[in-house]
Amino acid sequence: MSVIIPYIDKPNPVTGVTNAKLGIWLFLASEVMLFGALFSTLIILRSSATDWPAHGSDVLNVPLATLNTVFLITSSVTIVLSWASLKMKNLMKFKLHMGLTVLLSFGFLIIKYFEYSSKFHHEHYPSTSTFYAVYFTMTGLHGLHVIGGIITNLYLMGPGSKMWKTEPERFTGRIECAGLYWHFVDLVWIFLFPALYLL
């Protein structure tokens, strides 16, 4: 006898979702609280500061960050296309779109690397001022989430895609969950961009 866990590939008829989908939504709820606490930190520190040390629009590279925003939004589109390709039973197209997603996310990280190194070059560190502390901590934590997403997506594109042959529905569900997570990472950036670079 072996243990059977239902609703791994098909949704529970009562709740209308699979286990993984409910799980990823709950996980994202906790992530909202994590970044919510960091945004609150920014708001509290900035609103209580008599003299806010720096403004992002003066000291940060807005054109590069805009390009990064385009990269992430595009990658959110491509990950949906990769999921749609699976729905249309086309594994090759899935791999193509997932590959694009990963490329775009690497592009994001490379630009981030140039941004960071230019800051370090000008001797702007987290310890320089509260502004840079917030900037490095929040973009750093967001960057870790991007790296986590890249690892997941690479796995699903490569060795993880073997599941397509044995359990196509479950695999499609996994891509959907990866996509939900990726949208969240994208969304955090969409809040970070104005909060740090524009205001």
Binding site: L34, T41, Y125, P126, S127
Partner: peptide
């Protein structure tokens, strides 16, 4: 999660010299 965020901030204060 807010305590996790706070923990990260306090780690930054201790290790990266933030304030």
């Amino acid at each position: 999660p807010p305590l996790e965020a706070a923990g990260v901030l306090q780690l930054m204060d201790r290790l990266a010299g933030t304030s």
